[in-house]
Design a protein around this nucleic acid. Sequence first.
DNA 1: AAATAAGTTTTGGCAATCCTAATTTCAATG
DNA 2: CATTGAAATTAGGATTGCCAAAACTTATTT
Lengths: 232, 232
Amino acid sequence: MTASPEPQPLTGPVEDYLKAIYDLELVGSPASTNDIADRLAISPASVSGMVRRLADQGLVSHEPYRGVRLTGDGRRAALRTLRRHRILECYLTEVLQYPWDQVHAEAERLEHAASEELVERMAAALGDPVQDPHGAPIPTRDGRVEESTLRTLAEAAPGEQVRVRRVHDKEPARLRYLAELGIRPGCHLRILDKAPFDGPITVWVEDAVGGATRAVGVGLAAQVYVESEGQA
Amino acid sequence: MTASPEPQPLTGPVEDYLKAIYDLELVGSPASTNDIADRLAISPASVSGMVRRLADQGLVSHEPYRGVRLTGDGRRAALRTLRRHRILECYLTEVLQYPWDQVHAEAERLEHAASEELVERMAAALGDPVQDPHGAPIPTRDGRVEESTLRTLAEAAPGEQVRVRRVHDKEPARLRYLAELGIRPGCHLRILDKAPFDGPITVWVEDAVGGATRAVGVGLAAQVYVESEGQA
DNA sequence: AAATAAGTTTTGGCAATCCTAATTTCAATG
DNA sequence: CATTGAAATTAGGATTGCCAAAACTTATTT
């Protein structure tokens, strides 16, 4: 039995890069320099520089002009950070009553400073949650996640009944608006109509008080992940 | 009525310097380069460099070869950080059941990342505590503290009865040992004996189960602050 | 006053991260 | 196969923070 090697502490920026690459890789292909740059709002040139350092540290493998992939170590580090981030989000929401749209930003800052110890105490206080307030799965202590491939609300067809599983968490304004509409993980929707030419999607929100009809633009609908529950 | 100017966010190291200078200034004289260096465990050369930047930012005033003093802005910033630190310590101890000797290190990391918002939510959850687990006073939101000048246990005379008000918090090992002895803020001691030549101080610890006699070296006793409660 | 000890500052460097501008590479097109 | 446009990389700089070693100031001692 090999002792699990103590993961050396990474800097904040390094953790951010690894998270971004992890996320970009989820769709299958390696993460491109530009995508990483967009995601982190820094210049592509800076990404080139950092990617070399990450490769030197064995956290990613880099094929020039082809993109970046996490190594085993890199992936484990990314998942540790993701676990910290998502447990922090749960804790801020459930225990400290943080508003839905603010938890992401706060967790983003805390995740680099919080120790495993602290995060595990929070997880225990919450009874080891399995998903964060936006529906994202929380990696286990030993680095397992089940990242389900979900369709977005923008892809659902009229007549379908769906359950919202997850929503994007980066933009507070959009989150506040979704909350207003009553659309949040776990809620049930029926797709009533989908206007042509990328027009709005009209849905029936079961869980709103007495149910309600709402129109959602495609841009927003593309950030809402759903799971099919049947046809009307 | 002037609007309180939004304090710009400071970097972690800057906050650490300000806290150190605040602490060193408490004894009256300006903080010397070497003292700051010792406190932060960095070289005097680095302190010189940083002190210039702090002075440029108007956070400290610096008389070369004479020492450093916080300006009004610097003092306010130091107290904000101190408030964050101490509330975090309370929260970790009371809500998350952190062991006494570990809260300082965790709070030290979190204080630079936690927002006012988060800290105020924690303070509210605790009912606005006025002192941290080691007995240090918590500055109010508007930057008031009552830093009482206390004697140390090393200065107490045999026959005195004292109440422990505060203990140094930086060294986990010493804190664990003090906890073992039953010496913590709020507890009552009677000084039984003080051996010559900086020898140990023998005390009767009221609050230990059934009371107990303990011998404490001067080094440790100098880190325990007490308030007189009478003579035997 | 001169010498010395103690403390402080300056100098010159290094590492991590970021930037802009210029250059190189890849792949697609005429 | 030469051109071209997009994407990526390198070059050259800035900033924040840190350090070790050299140079300097102050204060004390002879």
